[in-house]
């Protein structure tokens, strides 16, 4: 299956925030009024009801000039996703397109994914059921997997009028990103493709104008070792042990039964033994 990538060229972004609104519009997410943050940025970071946030960064470049940098920030859809690794309920999974999605039916709101996401894009939302009991669910960008299923592009990409975002085949998008970096290096000497290897590459690939740290991104994000140990070793062993225990119990029960039956003789229905 073709893997898809959302390509974000931050140097083409004009900060109009249509991607933020388009996301809310498609996913029916409620507005989250915020206080003035001291800049044009509306929200500090992504939340359970705001799956993408446009960052506005005032950065002094090497020449002492002010650069006004924008970045559409949302889930990276990692190839090796820490959230998927730590989820104890297997509620987080990869789709055939490469996006990472949360199954709301399976999510129990434990928050491990929130703690382990290297990019801090997952958040919990609190709900109340009809008995007033509180429960929580984790939410984040789905890369509009429901739209991709129907042959449409993600809502944020569809609305972007500067062409800062594009959606397509992974290889094509990465080539495009590498080409674009060469074009802009004259103005932005630190420009780079952000597709970090530590998480196996991502399905949101950025052309950044500055070093990742300028955008508050980790230079080399990694899936926590404990997460790998949990998902790839502890959980399968645990499952195996559970299976073995069950088998042992059933076995013991059956043996016990046979043993008892033998002692008492067969009843009219035939019993369980032909020994």
């Amino acid at each position: 299956m073709t893997k898809y990538v959302k390509y974000v060229d931050v140097t083409k972004c004009d900060g109009c925030r249509a991607c933020m609104v388009a996301c809310k519009n498609w996913n029916d997410l409620p507005a989250e009024p915020t206080e003035f943050l001291g800049s044009v940025q509306s929200h500090v970071k992504t939340t359970a009801d705001t799956w993408n946030v446009l960052q506005y960064i005032e950065h002094e470049n090497g020449k002492g000039d002010l650069e006004y940098l924008f970045r559409h920030s949302s889930c990276f859809h990692c190839t090796d996703a820490a959230c998927e690794k730590v989820c104890p309920e297997n509620a987080i999974s990869y789709t055939k397109y490469g996006s990472v999605v949360i199954d709301q039916d399976k999510c129990v709101g434990c928050g491990y994914c929130v703690q382990n996401c290297p990019f801090e894009v997952i958040s919990l939302k609190e709900y109340k059921d009809k008995n007033g009991k509180e429960y929580r669910k984790a939410h984040k960008c789905t890369m509009c997997t429901d739209r991709i299923d129907e042959g449409l592009q993600p809502a944020c990409v569809t609305t972007c009028h500067t062409g800062a975002m594009e959606f397509g085949n992974r290889e094509v998008m990465i080539q495009k990103a590498e080409k674009r970096v060469k074009e802009i290096q004259g103005r932005y000497p630190n420009a780079m493709v952000y597709n970090p290897e530590g998480v196996g590459g991502t399905h949101t690939v950025y052309v950044l104008a500055e070093k990742p740290s300028v955008y508050g991104l980790p230079e080399n994000p990694k899936v926590p070792t404990s997460a790998v140990a949990w998902k790839d070793y502890a959980q399968p062993i645990g499952k195996m042990m559970l299976g073995a225990t069950t088998m042992a119990l059933v076995g013991a029960f059956v043996t016990n039964k046979l043993f008892n039956k033998e002692g008492k003789g067969l009843d009219e229905n035939g019993g369980g033994s032909d020994e």
Binding site: A18, V21, T159
Partner: peptide, 14 residues
């Protein structure tokens, strides 16, 4: 005119 694109205000039309 817009080839499917919209600004943030137009996106709120609903």
């Amino acid at each position: 005119i817009n080839e499917g694109k919209l600004c943030s205000k137009g996106t709120t039309l609903r």
